[in-house]
Each structure stands twice: as C-alpha cells, then as structure tokens.
C-alpha cells in the first residue's frame, strides 16, 4: 500500500519503534519551517527499514528525534514501549546509533580499546562481553587489526569499527545514517551483509537512512520515502517496485514510419521518442499496462511495419523513488518557486 494517508496504523504488538503524528518545526512566529510534518510509523522488531528521500526531506531529523537528540514540537515517540521524549535515558538502554559514519569512534585508540571504552560506558566489560566483541570483530573481518589505531585504518574499516562499537552492548534497535557514504563497492557489500546478519541472527531492528538506493533495495524489508517532512510512501520494498506500473518499451521496426502511422500511435500511446537509424526506426514508448503492448504491436503490423525486436527496460528502485518524490505536483511548484530545475 502506497501513500501515508492510505496506510492503516493499528497498534502492533510486535512493533518496537512507534512514532505518532510527529511534528518538528524550526523558526519563529513569522517564518516556520516544518522539518517533520505529521509523520506516523511503526517498525516491527527484527526488521530492517530504509528511510529514503532527497536532501532536506527530514530523514536525519526523524532519526535524531527517535533517538531523543532532537526535541519534537509535538507528537509521540516510543522505543521498546519507553517514551523517548519523557524518558530518553531509559530508551537509550535499548538502542544505539551510528550517525557520523567513519567518525563516531576515537581515532587515537585501537579497535580493541574503542570496544572496551564504549562497552564500559554502558556497564562493566566482562568475559561474556569480550567474547561478544571478538565474535563481532570476526564477523566484520577486523580481528587481525584489533590492536591497530583507528586512525591508521581505511574509511571502510573505520565505518565497520563504528558499527562494532555501536554493537558493543546488547541492544534491540540500531539506527544508521548514511552508512555506505564514502565506502567502495566491496566495503558497501560487506556492510550490507553484516546488517542482514545482525537482523537475522541477533534479531536487531535496524532503521537505516541512505541515499544508496541499491543498498536499501538489497538490505531492507521495507522502505519509507520522505519528502518535505512527510511520508510519501511506506511499504515493502517489492511493493514499492510494483508501484511503477508503467514500463518503458523499445521497439525496433524495419524502415521508416509514415507520419500518419506516427500520429495514430501517438494518439493512443505515450510515445517517448522516434529515432531513425541505419534503415530502422526505434520507437520508445511508456505503457502503463503490459497487455497494451499487444495492441501497439498490432497497430504497427496493421500499418505494414515489420517488428525486428521488442525490449522492456527493467524497473529499478531508483526509478520508483524518483517517480514518488519528483512527480509530486507540490514539489515541482516549490522547486519552481525556488528557481530550481
């Protein structure tokens, strides 16, 4: 189901994060900016949820509000049944966050010292905790560099150290803001694997904000698309992909296409372009229902054209995202008002 207005919000006994009608405004009486505008959502325990949206959509503000780093203007937030606004410290016992990517750790300490430090901040570090640290470092391929100073590590390794220190204690919910920023393909892939394992094996709920749509698509169970502080889509990733019913087809026909035929096709279909090349014509057309492609091919054949090939463009998550965010009428208007293209 797409669109925040359409999503039914019932009390879910399995939800670990619950946000109800959250509003965060900045500014004075004369000019108020609503960074978050009436956001409601729940996150089920053990799931991985992706937060998507263009810059300034409100992703980081939403995450920081859930963490208690930002005081909301109105609305309620709870994590594990604890009201974050009323009792942030109790809520913090259940969650951790990596908001600054490769930063977030002490670069002048070794990996081991960082783990001990962050572990000890949350209670004494005993044999059990050290065992968990070792297991986690193994999973993150950091065991061999345990005694290296963080400053000497690569950006990807620093990123993984940040994650390891966030997981240095037993938590239920992990928040990540742009975790793949600055990572190479390999580093990003390793991080994605780690997140999937964390959710599957340790039952950790993960809320991740990212511009890396590929990462969101491969890791997350569910995607929430934010724009201008509002949720514009909230659904399972595969359902978000289905949103874009329209498929783009490329048909190549032998020879040229008469103007009358072109007019007939253009009246019935959403033609993107006609391109003549090497004795053939490439017709690119957007079709909202796959069955309509048969009508199009029939029309071409009836007009004496011989079809050489038909190819459908694969829909990817980026296309869905763009259609959800950039096709919103008010977005176009506000961008036009700001003089943006």
């Amino acid at each position: 189901m797409i669109g925040s207005e359409e999503v039914e919000r019932e009390t879910n006994p399995h939800s670990i994060v619950s946000v109800e009608n959250l509003v965060k405004s900045y500014g004075g009486r004369e000019e108020t900016v609503r960074a978050i505008d009436g956001v409601s959502l729940t996150v089920e325990a053990g799931s991985i949820v992706g937060l998507l949206g263009p810059n300034g959509a409100g992703k980081t503000t939403l995450i920081k509000s859930i963490l208690g780093l930002i005081t909301p203007t109105s609305g309620s937030i709870s994590v594990g049944g604890v009201d974050v606004v009323e009792n942030p410290n109790r809520a913090h016992a259940k969650m951790a966050a990596v908001l600054e990517g490769a930063r977030s750790t002490y670069w002048r300490l070794t990996i081991r010292e960082n783990l001990e430090f962050f572990g000890r901040l949350n209670g004494e570090v005993g044999t059990e905790e050290r065992k968990r640290h070792r297991q986690f470092l193994e999973r993150l391929n950091l065991t061999e560099k345990m005694d290296d100073v963080v400053n000497d590590l690569s950006r990807g390794e620093k990123q993984r150290v940040s994650l390891a220190t966030a997981m240095a204690r037993d938590i239920d919910v992990l928040f990540l803001d742009e975790p793949t920023l600055g990572l190479d393909v390999e580093g990003s892939f390793e991080l994605q694997q780690t997140l999937t394992e964390l959710a599957a094996q340790r039952g950790v709920t993960i809320l991740v904000s990212s511009h890396d749509l590929g990462m969101i698509e491969s890791v997350c169970d569910r995607g929430i698309v934010l724009d201008d502080g509002e949720i514009v889509a909230d659904d399972a990733i595969e359902n978000l992909l289905d949103v874009l019913q329209t498929r783009v087809y490329e048909l190549i026909v032998e020879g040229g296409v008469a103007a009358s035929t072109r007019n007939e096709i253009e009246r019935a279909y959403d033609v993107v372009s006609w391109v003549e090349h090497r004795g053939c014509t490439k017709l690119t057309v957007a079709v909202s229902n796959a069955n309509r492609i048969h009508g199009l091919t029939g029309a071409l054949v009836r007009n004496g054209l011989q079809i050489r090939s038909i190819r459908m463009d694969d829909t990817d998550f980026e296309a869905v995202f763009a259609s959800l965010v950039y096709d919103r009428p008010h977005v176009d208007e506000s961008r036009a008002a700001r003089g943006e293209r």
């Binding site: 963490l67 208690g68 780093l69 410290n89 109790r90 913090h92 016992a93 969650m95 951790a96 966050a97 908001l99 600054e100 990517g101 930063r103 977030s104 750790t105 002490y106 670069w107 962050f118 901040l121 949350n122 220190t165």
Partner: peptide, 14 residues
C-alpha cells in the same frame, strides 16, 4: 567534531 558527542548523549544516563 569527532562525532562522538551524540554517542555520549545516547548513554542510558543523563
């Protein structure tokens, strides 16, 4: 600057 202030804030104590 180090990005660790938030982490100190997120401890389960005031």
């Amino acid at each position: 600057k180090w990005g660790t202030l938030e982490r100190l804030y997120l401890l389960p104590v005031k």
